[in-house]
Simulated scan of single mutants.
Amino acid sequence: MPLPPWISDLPALDLLLSVAETGSVGRAAQAHGISQPSASARIARLERRLGVPLLVRSRRGSLLTPAGQAVAVWTQQVVEAAHTLADGVRTLRADQEARLRVAASLTIAEYMLPAWLLTVRRTHPGTEISVGVSNSAGVCEMVRAGGVDLGFVESPDIPAGLSRRQVGDDRVALVVSAGYPLAARAGQEIPVTDILEQPLLLREPGSGTRDTFLNAVGGKAPHATSLGSTTTILATTRAGGGIGVVSSRATAAPVAAGELVELTVRGLDLTRPLHAVWLGRAPTALAEDLLAAIGPR
């Protein structure tokens, strides 16, 4: 059976308890920080909604009717529970204002997040900041579960139920060792079919880098090996183990040093947006400050 509409009028029920305690609508109004006419109007409205008289008013003050006394007894635990709820929520808000919980996919965590967090630490030196690192799918699960306030992902697909904001973009690069046979074709446009015939070194399922590449090539990579980190992929690529598929941010230094060679693939667009994700319509205040540090929306 659904609750009646008047049950939501907790401020009026709380006011009724104060009248019972003080013996006066005026003193109860003062305790609640409202005027006496306003307090009288609230009690009168509550009487109409309940359908029973609650107070007997006289020159000496206000007394509860027998019905009013019964309602006051039943109200006591309800109002106390409401105060417990209000205090708990205030505590949660204070805790939320004092800490920022972030999760980021590996590329963002390694190459972008440190500078972003440094800005927040400068403006909020007393804030506790915790950072979790996972692949894009893992980050979205952490946000969904309420384990973090804000997540950063590289995946081209954002799960339903999460709010998002683009915070940048990235490009997936295909690289090989300098001695790998395809390195001789660097600078040329290599057909996708030639790439798919080679051993491909991909991140694990759930990685935004992996998803970006597979979406671009139609979802098929028959000679792919899944590796759990960008570092492992780069090490295997240097050893001649195949074509490394990682963020261009991770390959910039080894390509500049001549350790790796980037391949150009005909008609293959491997750019991708980077997103912040969170639960609810708006991020927390600290999360919004972090997004502001990243730049315009």
Score class of each variant (00 low, 15 high):
T22I: 14
R121I: 12
L15W: 10
S58R: 03
G208W: 01
A28G: 00
V153T: 01
E262M: 03
E141G: 06
A104M: 00
L13Y: 12
V245P: 01
E141S: 08
S177H: 00
E204T: 10
A216G: 02
R101N: 07
D157S: 10
L63P: 02
G147Y: 08
R249W: 04
A67W: 00
S136Q: 02
G147S: 13
A115M: 10
A160N: 15
R45M: 06
V217G: 04
E288G: 13
L117D: 04
V56F: 09
H83N: 05
A94P: 00
D289S: 09
D269R: 04
T22R: 03
P125H: 09
R266P: 12
I233M: 00
I7W: 10
L85V: 15
S229R: 07
G242V: 08
S136R: 15
L270A: 08
S58W: 12
S248T: 11
G228W: 08
L16G: 02
R249D: 12
T264N: 13
L16M: 03
G68K: 01
W116V: 14
E110P: 03
I195C: 11
V265A: 02
G168P: 15
S105L: 09
V153Q: 04
A250L: 06
A183S: 02
L17Q: 14
A72W: 10
G51R: 15
A115C: 03
A173Q: 08
D289F: 12
V261R: 13
Q77E: 07
S134E: 07
T236Y: 01
E80D: 08
A70L: 02
E288Y: 14
Q36Y: 12
W74M: 10
S248N: 14
S58A: 02
L113F: 14
G295Q: 01
H223D: 00
P273N: 09
I34S: 13
I108K: 11
L10D: 05
G267H: 07
R42Q: 06
A82Y: 10
V246M: 01
A31W: 11
L290D: 08
P159L: 10
I158C: 09
G242N: 06
L92I: 06
L13E: 05
I7N: 04
V192M: 11
V245S: 07
S155P: 01
